[in-house]
Design a protein around this nucleic acid. Structure first.
Lengths: 376, 376
DNA sequence: CCTACTTAAACAAGAGTCTTTCATATTTAC
DNA sequence: GTAAATATGAAAGACTCTTGTTTAAGTAGG
């Protein structure tokens, strides 16, 4: 339970947090603007900024000759984004992806490594650790690392269960990495990071209730409810791939199509779907029917969650989101037909970086909650 | 966006709110206990209690001879529950139910009126208004009225759509009642009030993620997510009765049984289910099978929401919840078999007062948010 | 080049709240 | 009756905020 009372210093913490939040927006601001935005007096804003400068969380910068007005020039400040950086990692079956960003969320680097789903556990951990090591810009300034992975991840950072990467089940990823790098490390389910990314820089920006449907080799859900990430009581929220037969059956159509159109090749469900999408794009009628049937099956599964939750938006992400309208339109049509209040359906535009990007966002959120709130 | 900064007076408001929240717990407390619990100094607690006494939100009371210890006796205080009262109303198809409670949540009176689903709109409004009028204890002390009704209720208090009471669609219940009674009036969907009641005084007390399944003549869901009531973007959360064929089909088994066992009578789905439950209790094998099939169908529908949401608890409420284990056990079995992390399944014990009770709780919550926070 | 104007910064004074500390009051236990 | 325990009440001191005044640093125009 949060402490709701406090002494005089609480006031300073509150006001500091308000100022900091404005700076975290990324703009260059003057003291007067800051004071007005935070609804405090100028001397107060000044004192707080002084503190932040001393802590090196803010920096003074000249506004450039562009915004010279009459009168004495204002001192200008901004969040000291380069004071630190974070690393967001996406651990997938076939690839590892690390995105390094500064505290303003500016991407500094992106690294990708190909791996195999049946890689031994120790090797995969080693590969993740090596990728993180490579991505470090400055050891002293690394502030947090967030790793997104498939499967159920408990609050201690253990992968309790992973269907997509069987070898991965049981690994205590947080502990493994914490031994190597002395910064806060968080492990989170990849679906949830993806929906976070969409809410940050994707198609879900500004929405509060969002259902994120991942479609690739597997099917998964990520839920944003009331503007907050939903984790569930066992952090198992969104685990629908295994049992829920509707989603599994969805692939049947595209697999059948791929088998009949190109019997020579054996494809995973995701590859079969990609194949069918490609052919449909090229004008193949049978492929188009198979993709439409696939999309409709997905939509039928979505109805059971859309009706109870009543979200504003459904985001289709994952490898198959590049199918775009081919996938989105049949889903939208079905929801329009069947649900009382159909949400908008859109395809993700973040591509395959969404999980790593969401990991960066979670790292920044974590810093906001801990460092920037408790240490004021 | 909430204001996160403030001047010195904010501190007092914060601390007052902390003290008030403790008093709202209902206990009789001394100043020292209050100061310790709210983590403020004794003089601060004293000053705040003085304010609250002046506003008549708190009252001094002697502790009785029971708790005489050594030392100078402490002054004792409690929330002034009788300073006001609220009314919670359940508008159903067949009955209206009003519960009057004081600000401590103590029930003062309960009133019930039988109505008919095809009652004209105006008559029903009149009946609700009359029931509220009757339930008023002291006009000057009535603090809020909350009405729970079936159907989709928008944020202005209009019944946008009601399936169970067709005549009810489109009525602006909030406006109709606001003209009659000069206190805050809120209208809310009945499922959501029911889950609120379970969380307050029912089987869901202490849980944060709860799925409430209403079973009676209709099927509905109420969701508590992260300790908060989920409304959805169109306030349509939980509207699954119409289209979601799984739930509709659930009644098929009990209706078939009722038709075959007692062909003379035509029963609504809910009555058929009640009939089957009664016979199953009496030892009828066919009835038991029908009820079990009914429960399993419900569970199959629940799976599609339990898997994505990962709740801790499923509460079965509504008229059929009196079936108890007959309904709960097959549902629990099915969820255990099919879901990764099966939630606990329990039957409501609040009976048919849960909606009105939840309405009382919402009224009290509303007062906490408005009066007791903004007017400090 | 100098003056007037505009805007920001720096400083000082005053008010509100909280905490700590000390003296006083009231009751029980022995 | 005295000592111990607990509560009350008042005073002093610290922290933060706000308002108001003065000083500083530029631009605009003659």
């Amino acid at each position: 339970m949060r402490q709701e009372s406090g002494d005089a210093s609480l006031l300073r913490r509150l006001n500091s947090a308000a100022i900091l939040r404005i700076l975290r927006g990324g703009e260059v601001v003057t003291l007067t603007e800051l004071a007005r935005a935070a609804r405090v007096s100028r001397p107060t804003a000044e004192g707080i900024v002084e503190d932040l400068l001393a802590k090196e969380w803010a920096e003074e910068c000249d506004g450039g000759p562009a915004d010279r007005q009459r009168g004495r020039p204002a001192r200008r400040f901004r969040f000291h984004g380069s004071a630190g950086h974070v690393i967001g990692v996406d651990v997938g079956g076939y690839k590892l992806l690390a995105v390094t960003a500064d505290l303003n969320g500016e991407i500094l680097a992106t690294r990708r490594v190909a791996v195999s789903p049946d890689m031994p556990q120790a090797d995969r951990i080693g590969a993740v650790a090596a990728l993180v090591e490579e991505s470090v810009v400055d050891r002293a300034k690394l502030a947090a690392v967030v790793v997104g992975t498939t499967g159920v991840v408990d609050e201690t950072g253990r992968v309790v269960k992973s269907v997509a990467i069987p070898e991965w089940t049981g690994v205590h990823l947080q502990a493994e990495l914490a031994g190597l790098i002395p910064v806060p490390i968080l492990v989170e389910n990849d679906m949830r990071l993806a929906v976070l990314a969409e809410h940050w820089r994707g198609v879900a920006a500004g929405y509060r209730d969002v259902v994120y449907l991942f479609t690739g080799n597997r099917i998964g859900l990520g839920l944003l409810i009331g503007g907050r990430l939903h984790r569930g009581s066992h952090a198992a929220s969104g685990e629908i791939g295994d049992q829920s037969s509707g989603y599994r059956l969805a692939f049947r159509n595209v697999i059948d199509y791929a088998m009949s159109a190109d019997p020579g090749e054996l494809r995973s469900p995701g590859r079969a779907a990609e194949f069918a999408v490609g052919r449909a794009r090229a004008g193949d009628e049978a492929a188009a029917r198979a993709v439409e049937a696939f999309a409709t099956r997905l939509a039928e599964g979505l109805v059971t969650i859309v009706n109870p939750l009543d979200p504003e938006l459904v985001v289709v992400g994952g490898g198959l989101s590049q199918a775009g309208a081919l996938l989105v339109e049949p889903i939208q049509r079905h929801l329009n037909r069947v649900t009382l209040y159909p949400p908008e359906v859109v395809a993700s535009r973040l591509g395959n970086e969404s999980v790593a990007l969401g990991a960066v966002r979670l790292a920044l959120d974590h810093l906001d909650r801990t460092l920037f709130t408790q240490a004021l």
